[in-house]
């Protein structure tokens, strides 16, 4: 670990003015600092800011403080009632101890779990831009099949963010100049392209203060996570699904995926293949075709393509009540 300065912020304004890397739960950042994958010169501790409430707005939506612990958010009555996909996604992630410490804002900003990103003896464009990607041509079981580039095939590791993407969350921020921004989660994450080290739309010093959820969506909700062991494993594939059926036809659909891409993945073509259709395996297969049209395996993760197809079809059956 490099020597660093430490400051504790007593307000969001002071935090952005302090000019440093924010730390809340530290469940990911501290590990990365010990390995010198992250070497911030200054940490600004935001963990005591008054941003740990979940409030129901007049429009029926929720405003979630960036510091709400994952455990608390998963147990929140509004979340359990109106957004079960989110509660289930949260509980599918990490371990009880980590969920107690991890914050909502920090969860969105987790770094990839790519083996080579964590191994400073190996090349990684995300960790050391321009050094190369060891995962391409190496072992890539947990890595991406969608949205990759020749520079990076990392996946985003969050479960929570996948549900947030299905729920059309809006990320509320405060910038050092005092401006506030509302960023749709659909615009929040970046594809790796030639700059895999840039993962989000956040500007330097910009602080996530809240996450807004629209009013609870209509229909059934589901979070399904496929993993190599029953606990404490990142998703090989996960699906956050929200689907409503009216008069025998799919009226609305929101489907987001974890474990497939560099960001929580959502593809309008998947939903377009579903909406207006009567639920059937043929329709579900068309949705899977749309999702996986551009999918590309890198050897040890090739299995994710057939696996995703099966998981999506099974999830859609469950969401629509259709049987095989």
């Amino acid at each position: 670990m490099k020597t660093f300065d430490y400051a504790r912020a007593d307000s969001p304004e002071a935090a952005v003015a302090a000019g440093g890397r924010f730390i809340a739960g530290g469940t990911n950042l501290l590990d990365l600092m010990k390995l010198q994958i992250e070497t911030p010169e200054k940490l600004v501790d935001i963990s005591r800011l008054d941003l740990a409430q979940v409030e129901r707005r007049e429009d029926g939506g929720l405003t979630i403080g960036a510091l709400v612990p994952n455990s608390d958010l998963a147990a929140n009555a509004h979340v359990v009632d109106g957004y079960p996909v989110l509660a289930r996604a949260l509980l599918a992630g990490a371990s009880g101890q980590l969920r107690n410490k991890a914050s909502t804002g920090g969860n969105l900003l987790q770094r990839t779990r790519c083996y080579y990103f964590y191994d400073t003896a190996m090349a990684c464009n995300k960790r050391a831009p321009g050094s190369g990607c060891s995962a391409i041509g190496g072992y890539n079981r947990i890595l991406a099949i969608l949205g990759t580039s020749a520079q990076c095939i990392a996946t985003h590791p969050s479960d929570m963010a996948v549900a947030m993407r299905a729920l059309d969350a809006v990320i509320v921020t405060l910038k050092p100049d005092g401006d506030r921004r509302r960023i749709s989660i659909h615009d929040f994450y970046r594809l790796p392209g030639d700059t895999p080290q840039i993962e989000t739309d956040l500007e330097a010093g910009e602080l996530i203060t809240h996450i807004d959820l629209p009013p609870p969506p209509a229909g059934q909700q589901l979070y399904r996570k496929v993993r190599d062991r029953a606990s404490y494993a990142f998703a090989l594939v996960s699906v956050a699904g929200i689907v409503s059926v009216e008069d025998g036809k799919i009226a609305s659909a929101a489907l987001a995926f974890g474990g497939l891409g560099p960001m929580p993945w959502r593809d309008p073509a998947v939903e377009a293949a579903l909406i207006g259709q009567a639920p059937s395996d043929a329709v579900f297969a068309a949705a899977a075709d749309a999702l996986l049209a551009e999918a590309k395996g890198f050897g040890s993760n090739d299995f994710k393509i057939p696996l995703t197809r099966r998981v999506l079809i099974a999830s859609l059956r469950e969401l629509t009540g259709a049987s095989a």
Partner: peptide, 13 residues
């Protein structure tokens, strides 16, 4: 490649 307990999967509870 998997030289930590997150990716070397021993059975957990």
């Amino acid at each position: 490649v998997n030289r930590d307990l997150a990716e070397y999967h021993v059975p957990v509870n």
